[in-house]
């Protein structure tokens, strides 16, 4: 009975994963096994250390902002009458539906320093022109902005569903127990949403660490390789520079850490599920 499942997992999960790991242990010409040397070399490389730092900054900042903005949007939507909710929800979901490569092109145009809308608006209110994609810190922030713009609707829709699943009577009980709106949020809403928050943050962290298209279209890793994340750097090293084993090593770099994080997060989710639901 489970044979098809085993076949699917072996063919579509285990084999590609092991092949990637195997690739990462080969030399540049893929003729000899060199163990973990690719990882050693990478860690000695200053550009790669920059990539680790930028990837972590990008993923952590973007996920935090997506979660906060998503929660704020969900909270607002939850408190408008059901009748009007649908159209607002639909409109807010638009960024998530547009293919990111396409929408990022739009952002790229908006970030253009001389002739585009954002700087024009800034100038109109007396602000300075900002070199959005030309200066490292602004470029880093730009990449995060676009990722948040693209990903926050997903958090919003998940949190909206979670908010709707909290029984009204718990809020009524809290109101009678003496809770203000804020205390209700802290002591009832958030604890009741902990599982969905853990899962969305975990999954988004994994997906954001693996993000490629936004960086590729917006900055292509520049200026001076300072906005590269694992995926875009892996593509540059593995495909553009032709060192496939080292590219594989780059893309596998975060895997052990994320696997450990995922293990603990999911274990916590399971435990709470058993205790509460």
């Amino acid at each position: 009975m489970t044979l098809p499942l085993i076949a699917v997992i072996a063919g579509l999960v285990a084999w590609p994963a092991s092949y990637a790991i195997y690739l990462a242990t080969l030399n540049r010409r893929m003729t000899a096994f060199i163990g973990l040397d690719n990882f050693d070399i990478l860690l000695d490389n200053e550009t790669f250390r920059m990539v680790i730092w930028q990837s972590c900054f990008f993923a952590v900042t973007a996920v935090l902002l997506k979660a906060l903005i998503g929660f704020w949007l969900a909270h607002m939507l939850h408190h408008i009458p059901t009748k009007g909710q649908r159209k607002w929800r639909g409109m807010l979901l638009v960024p998530w539906v547009i293919p990111p490569a396409l929408s990022t092109l739009g952002w790229w145009w908006m970030f253009e320093p001389s002739y585009s809308s954002i700087n024009w608006l800034l100038n109109a209110v007396g602000g300075p022109s900002i070199p959005w994609l030309g200066e490292p810190w602004w470029a880093r922030i730009s990449v995060v902005i676009v990722n948040v713009w693209y990903g926050a609707p997903f958090f919003m829709i998940m949190y909206l569903a979670a908010l709707k699943s909290v029984p009204d009577q718990l809020y009524e009980a809290a109101a009678i127990d003496g809770a203000t709106g804020w205390q209700g949020l802290i002591h009832v809403t958030l604890p009741m949403m902990r599982n969905i928050i853990s899962i969305t943050v975990l999954f988004s962290l994994i997906v954001t660490f693996a993000n490629y298209d936004i960086v590729r279209v917006l900055t292509n890793g520049g200026p001076r390789d300072l906005t590269h994340v694992f995926a875009s750097y892996a593509f540059q090293v593995g495909v553009l520079s032709g060192n496939i084993p080292r590219g594989a090593a780059v893309s596998l770099f975060m895997f052990p850490l994320l696997a450990v994080v995922a293990f603990f997060v999911l274990r916590g989710v399971n435990r709470r599920q058993r205790e509460m639901a």
Binding site: P167, L170, A173, A174, D177, Q183, M276
Partner: peptide, 26 residues
């Protein structure tokens, strides 16, 4: 006032002790 609801409305993430202590804690 204090109210007892039809479906109890206990906070599922709190222990019995915390459920009872919540109002006093606030």
């Amino acid at each position: 006032i204090a109210m007892v609801f039809q479906n109890y409305a206990l906070y599922p993430h709190m222990t019995v002790y915390d459920n009872m202590a919540f109002g006093l804690m606030l």
